[in-house]
Design a protein around this nucleic acid. Structure first.
Length: 210
DNA sequence: ATCCCGAGGG
DNA sequence: CCCTCTGGAT
């Protein structure tokens, strides 16, 4: 099964795969993605409307006290780190980028709380730059599908995916893998009966080793 | 390698 | 109860 055939099949199963984080602009997307670390986007979407109503611009968020930010995001977990990250990120946007979200990997990953995965999502979704963000879902399903080796790092997974997938399909592929991992090839109880990739799946082999 | 850390699902 | 969730900083 070629990589293109895998992607074609995923497009049939998930024709509406796209970013599910609520956002009105690049600033809101960046903050939402930072908040989404180790948290479901359903949880993030519950709190971002009120957060962005209170802090609609990086200028306002940068000036806020952590004690005022934390209650808005408490329910998503890791809230102290995330409050520091989004406040620091907003401050950096104001001080170094005139309040505008930058559109390069180098500038994005220099922002507090914004690592390579977050930067790739912002590049892809906000700026339509070809990118593949490798998160927990993408890493897991890439290895199960045999597109990466079991002990590959996330960066190695990203490189292999970019090598095997044509550039025009990078942005869509990311969301196809996310939806596949979220709704079918789950970490805990994958729905193997409904999966069209049983013949190529490496899961048994991977879990036998670990 | 470890910490952060609440909500939701099984 | 345990595991997982679109990770990043130290």
């Amino acid at each position: 099964m070629t990589t293109d055939e895998i992607l074609d099949e995923l497009e049939l199963i998930f024709p509406n795969a796209e970013c599910e984080l609520i956002h009105k602009n690049a600033y809101e997307l960046l903050i939402a993605v930072i908040l989404s670390a180790q948290t479901t986007d359903v949880s993030v979407n519950k709190i971002t409307p009120a957060l962005f109503e209170r802090f609609p611009t990086p200028q306002l968020l940068a000036k806020a006290e952590l004690s005022e930010i934390e209650p808005y995001i408490h329910s998503i977990g890791l809230y102290r780190n995330k409050a520091r990250s989004i406040k620091g990120c907003a401050a950096a946007l104001v001080e170094k980028h005139q309040g505008i979200v930058p559109s390069t990997m180098k500038e994005l990953t220099a922002l507090p709380g914004c690592g390579r995965k977050t930067a790739n999502v912002v590049l892809s979704v906000a700026f339509n730059v070809p990118a593949i963000a490798v998160d927990t879902h993408v890493e897991r399903v890439s290895k199960r599908l045999g597109l990466a080796k079991p002990d590959d790092s996330v960066l190695e997974v990203e490189k292999k995916l970019k090598r095997k997938i044509k550039r025009e399909r990078w942005n869509k592929s990311h969301h196809l893998f996310i939806f596949f991992g979220r709704y079918l090839c789950m970490a805990r109880n994958p729905q193997c009966e409904r999966c069209p990739f049983q013949s190529i799946c490496k899961r048994k082999k991977i879990e036998a080793v670990s």
